[in-house]
Write a protein that binds this DNA or RNA. Structure first.
Lengths: 142, 142
DNA sequence: CTTTTTTCTACAGCTACTGTAGGAAACGAA
DNA sequence: TTCGTTTCCTACAGTAGCTGTAGAAAAAAG
């Protein structure tokens, strides 16, 4: 039987996070010691490791809840699991795309900065320079 | 004089977000109409556009607060602004790196799924398969 | 037996907003 | 001017996914 602290160490999770998972219902209420402390077995260890690994892969807790539900009902097809993973992949790719665009703009901005005085700092000018943004919203909104 | 709604439309911001920015002190308290409604001028429009543009580039509100402070004190060097932008670029690059690693693992996972029954779903197996994670934390923690 | 570590509950705080309720102000049309 | 619609006001709760705190009890170590 494992204490919450041991479980935490073994899975690289903080103790409060485990209690939080219990609170939101993705970890079960475990048994207790005589003194009222949580005691876990291997099943809970596996479940928590699954959750943490999925979190590391960027799955939301809601998606993980779905995955756990699916894995509890073996009569359903693997296709549903696949769909969740595909969705996750698409989200990751979208995020990468957005960040790459940011990187381009940041690099351009930084490249133009020649370490002069504030008055003509290119970075601030670029950030202040919202012409495109403004007209964007103007045309779009009105 | 602009109403808060007009300012919102022009900058692509929600009305509540503007009030939130005022509350946390990165937008000033504006003048009011006779009836007590907020009225803005071009200075506030510029400031808000600066904030929104910076947010779109991934800067945190804290970083933006710094940038605004710096741009209010023109005697300081552009190098400080450059440092903030560089830091931001490094963060963006780190995030891209992490997401690319995720993408690799997700693709591998999905590739192995052959749409069979749950019992032998590769995706769930991969997610469940935490050997590496466990030993990682085991060796690292103990 | 004493000291230190761990655990307990309950709650506040974090980022950056977003949404809601209930009411007042402003604006356009008749 | 009156009506109806839209916008605005304040104040507060909620979102995701935790993290940190306080004060007390239980467990482990010496």
């Amino acid at each position: 039987m494992l204490s919450i602290g041991t479980l935490a160490k073994r899975t690289g999770t903080k103790v409060q996070t485990i209690r939080y998972y219990e609170q939101i219902g993705i970890m079960p209420e475990p048994g207790r010691s005589e003194g009222g402390q949580r005691r876990y077995g291997d099943e809970e260890l596996d479940r928590l490791a699954f959750i943490r690994h999925s979190r590391q892969l960027g799955f939301s807790l809601e998606a993980i809840r779905e995955l756990l539900d699916l894995s509890d009902s073996p009569e359903r097809s693997c296709a549903e699991v696949d769909a969740i993973a595909q969705r996750q992949l698409r989200e990751v790719e979208a995020r990468i795309g957005r960040l790459e665009a940011l990187r381009v703009e940041l690099r351009r901005m930084i490249g133009e900065c020649d370490q002069g005085q504030m008055a003509d700092c290119r970075i601030l000018q670029v950030l202040r320079d919202h012409e495109e943004c403004l007209t964007d919203h103007d045309r779009g909104g009105a």
